[in-house]
């Protein structure tokens, strides 16, 4: 009868029977191990079948783990899009374009692809408090969309706030006047305000985004004027349906890690303000014309 290793030896001993068998099956035998194995084979007829067993195990592990065989096409397209965007960023000057709109189609495709990944991800992990949202009694809020939007915003803010590569890729508009025009073109209405210098935050960039829910959206991000930490993000989304949010109320979503997301609707646009500093938050909401009445979401 053939038996697998019956050793009580340390598996760290490279000359132990089991280590020799595994090394032989894996093609990892050293010269010394080869010599010792030959000696063992001559005295132990079960060694060869034990090696064959380990080899079979490896082959079957390979078969069992060869799934999923191919990456999803959407993921491949998204990565190709990132490569293409990066080419625009680091490519020769002659191929660069200062106009965001020249690359709008590609950007929207990238944003859509990011949305696919991000919205699938948001079901579990991102840093929004996961307590059930109480019913406010003010408006029939779609709470599922509310939660999804909050998670998406937290993730996008965290990706852009270091002002590194993701920021460079996403925030193609760096001028606040151009940002105003862009919002009008994309969302069909001007935002209440773009510049937030009076609250101590300097416009850093804007790019199209894909906040969950109906309507196109943009993301603007601001640096503190005093160069301290704590960027602020303002997302603005088309919102033609007044049933989604009560215009007389702003909603507060506490975020894990500090700060809160403030959401309100004004003039056919929904605003999502993410700021970690409470004092600044109050000032920002005043500047942006947020409703005075606040409810927890």
């Amino acid at each position: 009868m053939t038996e697998h290793s019956a050793n009580s030896e340390s598996p760290h001993d490279p000359l132990s029977r089991s280590a020799l068998i595994r090394a032989a099956a894996d093609g990892e035998l050293s010269a010394e191990q080869s010599r010792v194995l030959e000696t063992l084979r001559s005295s132990d007829a079960s060694v060869d079948s034990a090696i064959e067993f380990e080899s079979q195990l490896r082959r079957h592990v390979a078969t069992a783990m060869h799934e999923p065989a191919a990456a999803p096409a959407a993921l491949r397209a998204n990565i190709e899009s990132i490569f293409a965007q990066e080419r625009d960023v680091v490519g020769p000057a002659a191929t660069r374009s200062t106009s965001f709109w020249n690359r709008r189609a590609g950007w929207l495709a990238a944003a859509a692809a990011i949305l696919v990944v991000a919205s699938a991800t948001m079901i579990t992990q991102w840093p929004v408090n996961k307590q059930p949202l109480p019913v406010t009694g003010v408006a029939p809020i779609d709470q599922g969309m509310f939660i999804a939007a909050s998670r998406f915003i937290a993730k996008e803010h965290n990706r852009c706030a270091p002002f590194e590569r993701y920021f460079d890729l996403k925030m193609k508009v760096r001028d606040s006047a151009e940002a105003t025009d862009t919002v009008v073109k994309l969302l069909g209405a001007p935002p209440t305000r773009i510049e937030l210098d009076d609250a101590g935050y300097q416009f850093a960039g804007m790019g199209p985004c894909a906040v969950p829910g109906p309507g196109a959206s943009v993301h603007m991000i601001y640096r503190p004027v005093d160069a301290s930490d704590g960027a602020v993000s303002l997302f603005v989304q088309q919102s033609d349906d007044s049933r989604l949010l009560d215009e007389n109320v702003r909603y507060r979503v506490p975020m894990e890690g500090g700060g809160a997301l403030l959401i309100w609707r004004n003039g056919g646009l929904t605003y999502y303000l993410f700021c970690q500093d409470e004092t600044s938050q109050s000032h920002l909401m005043t500047l942006l014309g947020a409703p005075g009445r606040e409810l927890p979401a």
Binding site: L75, A120, T121
Partner: peptide, 8 residues
């Protein structure tokens, strides 16, 4: 979803 995000 997490896999796609990690690969990206």
């Amino acid at each position: 979803a997490l896999t796609a995000d990690l690969v990206q």
